[in-house]
């Protein structure tokens, strides 16, 4: 089973090594996703941090934007971190980046200020536990409706889940802690096991 990492721009290789490291334990392999062809070969997709404007424009240009929306409706698991969460959101309040609407969150870009306001904070994540979260020019989830709240900081959500969509505003790939990637993989595996049981 392949876990794709969207290879357009940003900290792609960090996610790649995390999935590679977890590969043996869970029987998964990382796959760099550059086009729609690659998208057909993955069970899960990570949209990494980077510049949301750049990632958004290239997704649209390569005709991957609508394809990811369709694949997600048909069961593809997607995890967006930082810029990735902006891409997955319903409302970005910014005409430069249109959210895919895969998760019912309203998100604000660079909500905490500029780079000197970037920070590290210890948070508690439901189903996962304590985590040192690295926030870099992070966006803020201003509202969420029916999604499940997994973690918050300063009374604002920083990690939410809507079935097969995970959106987090920090960078799990910059820490040495693979537990969020592990959670993502486990979700996909449990879902596949459920599908197989249903088929039988």
């Amino acid at each position: 089973m392949n876990i794709g990492i969207l290879n357009i721009q940003g900290d792609v290789s960090e996610h790649y090594y995390f999935i590679k490291k977890l590969g043996k334990k869970y029987g998964v392999s990382p796959l760099l996703v550059k086009n729609n062809n690659d998208l057909n070969n993955v069970s899960g997709l990570i949209i990494p941090g980077g510049e949301s404007t750049v990632i958004y424009n290239i997704l649209v240009k390569n005709n991957m934007y609508d394809n990811i929306i369709n694949l997600n409706k048909n069961g593809l698991y997607v995890m967006g971190t930082c810029a990735g969460a902006i891409i997955l959101s319903e409302d970005t309040s910014d005409i430069r980046v249109k959210g895919m609407g895969l998760i019912d969150i309203k998100i604000k870009r660079n909500a905490y200020g500029r780079q000197i306001n970037s920070f590290i904070e210890n948070i508690y994540i439901k189903h996962i536990g304590d985590f040192s979260a690295v926030f870099i020019r992070a966006p803020e989830i201003e509202e969420y409706k029916n999604s499940e709240l997994l973690s918050e900081y300063n009374n604002k959500p920083v990690f939410v889940r809507n079935k097969n969509v995970l959106a987090l505003t920090f960078h799990p790939e910059l820490t040495g802690d693979p537990s969020i990637h592990e959670y993502f993989i486990k979700n996909i595996l449990e879902n596949e096991a459920g599908n197989n049981r249903a088929k039988q």
Binding site: S118, I120, I136, D177
Partner: peptide
């Protein structure tokens, strides 16, 4: 949990982390 907040290289991590977000770009 790996507690990064109290580690000395926390600042370094944020600085190098910022640079990583520009990878693959112009």
């Amino acid at each position: 949990m790996l507690d990064l907040k109290t580690l000395k290289f926390g600042d370094e991590l944020l600085k190098r982390g910022f640079a990583k977000m520009t990878k693959g770009g112009v």
